[in-house]
Design a protein around this nucleic acid. Structure first.
Lengths: 151, 151
DNA sequence: GTACAACTTGAAGTTGACTTCAAGTCAAGA
DNA sequence: TCTTGACTTGAAGTCAACTTCAAGTTGTAC
């Protein structure tokens, strides 16, 4: 085990495809040195960034947002616990918001099925103003809210 | 108020754009009659389908999945409470799964920040095998899980 | 009857996050 | 040295869910 890895080694270890890694490098999310022949060699610490990227994608951040977050890491020194934690702390809020939104939707679904309002028209389910109000920027795949009229 | 509506009336009442309504008609999710001149006229009951579509989109279903669900509705008669509820009941499971996945991620985040494992490498946050196992087909925007190695 | 907003169509464009392709180059074991 | 799998590039393709466009038609208020 060297401290530099080929792209396929990083792919295996990170779970990302090689093409995704090339894409991420092009987007500036990760960096690689090159051999004299031009092939990429990744330092092991890129795996940490990739783990961060994977986690951020799970939270629903776009690559642009992830790039901004990674830019907050200190460039001169190795990131400390405080550096990473500052970045990830904001996810907590985001996750809480998304969980709240989904719970609200679920409870609306229960009441909708239970209440007999066939048309769904007053249900929080199809008219989730509370969800739109609760959640911040869109991470979970939810489109804009509806305001349906009577059937 | 007639019981037929123009596309812009439906757009206003449903919250969908006119182009989205044309798209949904082309995809077979909703239907419209035509005037002698060829303009669309929507029956009011299409608003109910649109409310359903909006709710389903909120749950994270794709249009294909929504189309399949709507195909389960009886074609001969007006859908009953039981018809709608049969369709929406499966959402409950889906929502529960997604909520569980996000909660697991959030709890992993807490422990990651708290435990001092700077590298994130063993965190459920960046290595959420439990999430992959918990959730069904992908509604929430979560990519495939990572299996990061040591930093 | 005339004006004009609202409507029609098919085709092409958009966005994000990649994947696929073609054609060639590199690295490492036998 | 040879072979062969791994690697390189830029460009183009993919997917979902629409949106935008251009050019023409319809409906209706006056």
């Amino acid at each position: 085990m060297e401290d530099v890895l080929t792209i396929s080694e990083v792919a295996t270890r990170s779970g990302f495809s090689a093409s995704a890694l090339r894409f991420y490098e092009k987007e500036g999310l990760i960096t690689a040195t090159r051999t004299s022949g031009g092939q990429r060699r990744f330092h092991r610490h890129e795996l940490r960034r990739l783990a961060f990227i994977a986690a951020a994608r799970h939270v629903g951040l776009t690559l642009d947002e992830i790039g901004e977050a990674l830019d907050l890491l200190p460039s001169g020194r190795t990131p400390t616990k405080a550096d990473w934690s500052k970045i990830t702390r904001s996810w907590r809020k985001r996750l809480d918001e998304e969980i709240a939104a989904l719970e609200s939707l679920r409870d609306g679904l229960d009441s909708c099925i239970g209440c007999g309002c066939l048309t769904l028209q007053r249900c929080r389910l199809s008219n989730p103003a509370d969800i739109a109000a609760t959640r911040g920027s869109g991470a979970v795949y939810l489109p804009k809210p509806l305001h349906p009229d009577a059937d």
